[in-house]
Design a binder for these strands. Structure first.
Lengths: 194, 194
DNA sequence: CAGGTGATGTTGGCAGTGTCAACATAAAGG
DNA sequence: CCTTTATGTTGACACTGCCAACATCACCTG
């Protein structure tokens, strides 16, 4: 035991979040163990409790981080660029890419069992993500349209469609030869908005 | 301890499935404990292992039962009756009603963490449920249409939409004043199919 | 620069969990 | 009647989240 073994880790909170996200992605959420996590990081079994009041609190923080990442991805695909033509399509692709690249995190974010909603950070960042969708649908529909109610329903429909598709994809319920799924999505929205 | 306390329960398997379904619906899936279950039923902690190889096996059986119930509901709403006009709408309502009345079960069915797919019963009954959807979309589109590929994409789109909406509903992500959600659904499909 | 104070990490322990091995009971069938 | 077999019980093990008591160290104030 050299003197350079730090008694204090220095960035345990970040290390925990990071390790936990990696762990749920590789072994599944239900196999996540705080003790294992601490062990892997090289810290004692109860050290995490100095940064998170409970396992649930850790998961809530992870979900919040997930919404932050999702919002960031969506906002990036909202920026003006080469593919500005079909902005909604681009956003949808980002959304589904996110769910696909971090399926366990995505499931956790919408589990409600329930992490998510209770935390302020979750509400804030999911609001940001939702905002991107709202703006995109707004832009597409702005050519004179009906009630606000109607608009809300359309937005939710679009969200439900993409969210549902993401779910089917990451839960392995789609036949293998449907890479065209996302393209089809674009058609659907187009059809609906006309 | 009277002599009439049966040493053998008689229908433990069914009692376990039943109690477990009730328990996950009232306390959440992650709080389900085999020992508690056994205790509530009035049997020793390891008795369940005579009927299920593991907790996971129990959950798989529950998921299978869920798909059986869902398939039954959907098939019932397929029968000729008063509301045969908009069959797809009726089926969608059944689907969403199912998810809403048994949210925890519905989540378990699509968890993949993962129960579901591996079991034969799950595959069979989810196939039955999917068949109902296929037939309904078929009927609606049969007025001369494009490729089979296209048809498949449409079916999956419809499923994704309803599935996604169910998810948003049971995870409490929809603003409270959207009871009109299901009606909007009908509009969307209609729009898409035209 | 001394010393105390608060944030961070550790040790030991408790109650609860899924699961296995060994044993007990009772219903069924020759 | 006696054995077989399905079913249920007991005891134990390794693991979990979490709490209380203690250790270490960075930092601030005198």
């Amino acid at each position: 035991m050299t003197k350079t073994d730090h008694y204090h880790h220095g960035a345990l909170r970040e290390a925990l979040l990071d390790s936990a996200m990696r762990a749920i992605e590789s072994d599944g959420l239900e196999r996540l163990s705080l003790r294992d996590l601490a062990g892997t990081i090289g810290v004692s079994k109860t050290a995490p409790y100095r940064h998170f009041a409970s396992k649930r609190a850790l998961l809530e923080a992870i979900a919040a981080e997930g919404f932050r990442l999702l919002a960031a991805d969506l906002e990036r695909s909202e920026e003006p660029g080469p593919g500005t033509a079909d902005r909604l399509g681009t956003i949808a692709r980002s959304y589904i890419d996110f769910a696909r690249s971090r399926p366990a995190l995505y499931r956790l974010m919408f589990s409600k069992l329930g992490y998510s909603l209770e935390s302020e950070a979750c509400r804030l960042n999911s609001g940001r993500a939702f905002g991107v969708l709202v703006r995109a649908v707004d832009a597409r529909m702005s050519t004179g349209w009906r009630s606000v109610e109607n608009q809300e329903a359309v937005i939710l429909s679009v969200w439900a469609l993409v969210h549902g598709w993401a779910g089917l994809l990451i839960d392995g319920l789609l036949p293998r030869q449907i890479p065209a799924a996302e393209e089809r999505w674009a058609e659907m929205v187009q059809a609906f908005l006309s």
